[in-house]
Simulated scan of single mutants.
Amino acid sequence: MTELKRYPEYKDSGVEWLSEIPSAWSVCAFGRFARFRNGADYSSVEVADGGYPVYGSGGEFRRASEFLFDGESVLFGRKGTVDRPLHVTGRFWTVDTMYYTEIATRHLVPRFVYYWATQLPYSYWLTSTALPSMTQSDLSAAKIPYISIEDQDAIVAFLDRETAEIDAFIADKEELIGLLAERRAAAVDVLLRQDDGKGIRNMIKLGWAFDFLNGDRGSDYPDRRDFVESGVPVTCSTACVDQLVRTQSFVGPVEVRWHHRWWRYGLGRERSIAATRSGYSIRGWNDTRGCC
């Protein structure tokens, strides 16, 4: 990320969650330069093709034959998901669980408002109901830095540039992860399948690739009083909870994954696969340390 230079002087913003701001800045209520408008039910205007985007908290998800607003706006959640503001432009419709805003662009840059909105501590204002909700009055009273349009544009340009680089990096990594997953699946396929010479690929027998060894319940299997902090991995057959024990069967501490039905001591081998011989036969876990 590009190195940022500090302003010469800072002052207390007077807003608990905003902390200090540059001394030349001031703050004001967001509602001074913005008006909140309610979204509406879209069922009567929904169309299959064409039309205008219908926005919810997750972005566009339907199209409408009419629009509620034409311009640049920041959308805020009213009920449900209230902490995911959206920056939109053009003609659009919003669902009835969201607000859209009419912003006085002579004073506030909508894209600047969006970045500010992503940092709001929404939990501070949430009403104490089963469904989280935000009121227009609370959002209008939220304090926003009030600085020149030029400074807002400069901040927006910087954040757009930096976040675009981060998004591109994330996209590259996700593509790499997808390719590695395909490569992993192909490697497993090559190992576990063979060609019978007639172009037909068959599953091989597990016994060709693995040795099967029995676990040992033992006569002195531990109870909850034996838990310690580290040791040798131990597995069980079903939903696993990490616990640690001492037993006479091992020298030193022994890790156990326990369940109220029964215990199964592991073999202590690295990179092994544990599978049950009775009970929950479809469960198993890799490396004797992670239940899957």
Rank of each mutant, 00 (worst) to 15 (best):
A181S: 14
Y280P: 00
R161Q: 09
R217T: 14
Q152N: 01
E270N: 12
P233W: 04
L4R: 14
S26V: 12
F227H: 04
A187E: 10
K143T: 09
A187L: 15
A274M: 01
D189E: 15
R277S: 14
S23E: 09
V54H: 03
T127I: 11
A117H: 04
D242V: 13
Y221K: 05
G268A: 03
G58D: 14
A239D: 13
L131G: 07
F227L: 12
D226S: 05
A64G: 03
R271W: 13
A181P: 02
F61K: 09
G80Q: 00
V109D: 11
T135M: 01
G80D: 06
P110I: 08
R283Y: 13
R261L: 15
A34F: 09
P222L: 06
E60M: 11
T135N: 10
R35D: 12
S219M: 12
F212D: 07
N214I: 05
V88T: 00
L159W: 05
Y265I: 13
M98S: 02
G90V: 04
S128P: 04
R6S: 12
Q119V: 11
I21G: 00
R183L: 12
A154V: 06
S249N: 07
S133R: 04
L75P: 01
A40R: 05
L179Q: 12
Q194M: 04
W17T: 10
P233K: 07
I144A: 02
R257N: 07
W208R: 14
I177Y: 15
S128Y: 08
A274S: 11
K173D: 09
R277M: 15
V45K: 02
M203C: 09
M1V: 12
Y100L: 11
I21E: 08
V88P: 05
K79L: 08
L131S: 13
D153S: 13
A104Y: 04
Y100T: 09
L267V: 13
G178Q: 05
D160M: 01
V82S: 05
S13M: 02
E270L: 08
V245N: 07
L206I: 03
F112H: 01
I103F: 01
R264G: 09
G14L: 05
E9M: 10
E165Y: 11
S230T: 12
E175H: 01
L244A: 15
E165H: 11
F33I: 00
F67G: 10
G31R: 03
R246E: 07
R183G: 07
L267F: 13
F212C: 10
G59F: 06
D12F: 03
D83K: 03
W125N: 06
F158V: 01
F69R: 00
S219V: 07
G71D: 00
I155L: 13
G218S: 08
I170N: 01
Q194S: 09
V241N: 09
A187S: 13
D172I: 06
P22N: 06
G59W: 05
R32Y: 08
K205W: 09
R217L: 01
E229H: 09
A48Q: 08
Y146T: 04
T247E: 04
I166A: 02
G284S: 08
L75C: 12
V228R: 06
T129V: 12
G199P: 02
L180E: 08
E255A: 11
